[in-house]
Amino acid sequence: MKQLNCIIIDDEPYAHNILKDYVNKVPFLSLVGVFTNPIEALVEIRSNNIDLLFLDINMPELSGIDLIKMLPSGIEVIITSAYSEFAVAGFENNVLDYLLKPYSFDRFLSATQKVLDKLMLHSLKKDQDTKQNTAKADAFYLKTDRGKIVRINFEDILYIEGLKNYCSVFTDTQRHVSLVSMKSLSDGLPEGEFIRTHKSYIIAIKKIKSIDGNLILFENIAEKVPIGVTYRDSFFYMLNKTLYK
């Protein structure tokens, strides 16, 4: 079983004791360090192979949200906080789960299992890519929120919608919901075939039926995808390459 190297960052010693006890009960977790100072923790993170952070939000010197923005890529974050109002900010920064204090061991275990599942799926995809060598992938595998792993062909995707800590992948006939970040899905999509049109949407370029103002329409479905202000220029720059005027 893969071991996940984890760090606890919380300015409350009582929270440390609970988390250390929970971590010791989970066979696939290996505790690398415990910190009350997020800046000191950041030094440790950048010098070691860390997979997972258990991170408090309301801390002196540096908030948990600010720390997340400074993390190297590839590190998963589970927030542990007594304040529910930071949940939206957490999920907007792609945290994998949000544990509201006090939380049970069962809830803790469920959150860590999400991390293990995601990293194992990522590892499986890397192995598949290695075996295929230079062959172009035509699909990927997605673990749904119901625990089922499904194969999704790239050519079947209409668009992807980000929903806080979830993503929905839409085809003509189905919607697949998964606990995976938009960035993770985006990184695995074929270059030049998909484009982000909004902070919450990625679309398949060849599936565009028409564009009406700031809305994208597709064949066979009534749903429309918005074009956000931030992404409008890059989207139309791409579109203009194939546009007959």
Rank of each mutant, 00 (worst) to 15 (best):
L4S: 04
N5R: 11
C6G: 01
E12Q: 14
H16S: 01
D21K: 14
Y22F: 15
K25T: 07
L31H: 08
L31D: 08
V34S: 03
F35P: 00
T36E: 15
E40V: 07
V43L: 09
N48R: 13
N49W: 07
L53E: 03
N58F: 04
P60W: 12
S63Q: 08
S63W: 12
I75R: 10
V77Q: 07
T80F: 05
Y83T: 08
N93M: 09
N93Q: 13
Y98G: 02
L100R: 03
Y103N: 01
R107V: 12
R107G: 04
T112M: 06
Q113N: 12
D117S: 11
L121S: 11
D127N: 13
A139E: 12
F140M: 15
L142S: 06
R151P: 01
F154Y: 15
E155D: 14
E155V: 10
Y159R: 00
I160V: 12
Y166N: 08
V169E: 07
R175A: 14
V177Q: 08
S181T: 15
G188T: 10
K199Y: 02
K199V: 12
Y201E: 08
S210R: 13
N220M: 07
F235W: 03
Y237D: 14
K241S: 06
T242F: 14
Y244T: 12
K245S: 10
K245E: 10
